[in-house]
Design a protein around this nucleic acid. Structure first.
Length: 284
DNA sequence: CCCGGAACCTGAAGGC
DNA sequence: TGCCTTCAGGTTCCGG
């Protein structure tokens, strides 16, 4: 599932091949993936535009195009962007193909059909619905304290809420909470400043490590060249079940449902109740 | 405003 | 072997 580190990896790896090239043609096989306009308007708005640069905001990938246009994509659950030669036949899960100059194509591959894309002159919609970028200097521990103040929802649900923080999904929420020693069901507003400070640090460490590992290929995530990432091999708790033991204290990991999401955690390192003392392991 | 649950999708995995 | 059910989760929508 593409979350911030996966989208960032796609951005980094795709950019050198497509920046400076113009869009020659587009094929859309699954029309509902185009939102905000008709498919015809979408296609005619794209043809002839040059890719100026690639950006990312949360889990959204942004193609900055000539004439001030922006092509925004969201890969949702199962999407990936594959860089191909024009001669390469798209497989059955490719929902759209963007043909560029010099015989290069981008295949938007998405088995589950949840992915979307649209063309827009500005990024206002994204800014309205997204909280701060977790890796941004302006996203301080104190800012996170303010965002969680008085919240009664489980901290895991709050981390998944893109209005509060942008880019965190199910896998990295579990990893960050484990690293910070916080139970996913603790109400956000009950966390101490100390805990939130640790969580803030954990979020950054977990995300930046995952970017270095080129993302986590737990499902259908592929990098633009078709390779997989290796971040999932470094997971401490996320998606680790079937008698897996906590890498810190060696007791069995548990799984429970939080906000309709499978949540993996260590019942020893991440106690349900607020602790009196602070002998929580600070290592990651 | 805040919170939780369903819907959108389809391949994979599990049960019988 | 094969059919059926359930699970997976990012975002949006809707109800309380």
């Amino acid at each position: 599932m593409p979350e911030l580190p996966e989208v960032e990896t796609i951005k980094i790896e795709l950019a050198p091949y497509i920046v400076g090239k113009s869009i020659k043609s587009i094929t859309v096989n699954w029309e509902r993936m185009v939102i905000g306009s008709t498919v015809q308007e979408f296609i005619s708005g794209l043809i002839g535009k040059k890719v100026i640069k690639l950006g990312r905001r949360g889990k959204y990938l942004i193609f900055h195009l000539s004439k001030g246009k922006k092509l925004i994509m969201h890969l949702r659950m199962s999407g990936s962007l594959l860089l191909k030669r024009d001669s390469c036949e798209p497989d059955r899960y490719v929902r759209a193909v963007i043909n560029l100059e010099e015989g290069l194509s981008i295949h938007f591959r998405d088995p589950r059909k949840f992915g979307v894309m649209w063309l827009t002159p500005d990024l206002n919609i994204l800014e309205e619905k997204l909280g701060p970028e977790p890796m941004d200097k302006k996203f301080t521990a104190n800012k996170l304290v303010k965002l969680l103040e008085k919240r009664k929802a489980p901290i895991k649900a709050l981390l998944l809420d893109q209005h509060i923080i942008a880019g965190i999904g199910n896998m990295y929420a579990d990893e960050a909470l484990f690293s910070a020693g916080i139970h996913p069901l603790r109400p956000g507003g009950d966390l101490t400043v100390k805990e939130i400070t640790r969580l803030h640090q954990s979020i950054r460490e977990v995300l930046s490590a995952a970017i270095e590992y080129k993302g986590a290929s737990v499902n259908t995530y592929y990098r633009p060249g078709g390779e997989q990432g290796i971040a999932h091999f470094k997971f401490q708790v996320a998606h680790r079940l079937g008698g897996k033991l906590c890498p810190i204290c060696s007791i069995p990991l548990e799984r429970s449902i939080v906000r309709n999401r499978g949540s993996y955690f260590c019942p020893g390192c991440q106690p349900r109740e607020k602790r009196k003392n602070k002998l929580i392991k600070a290592k990651r």
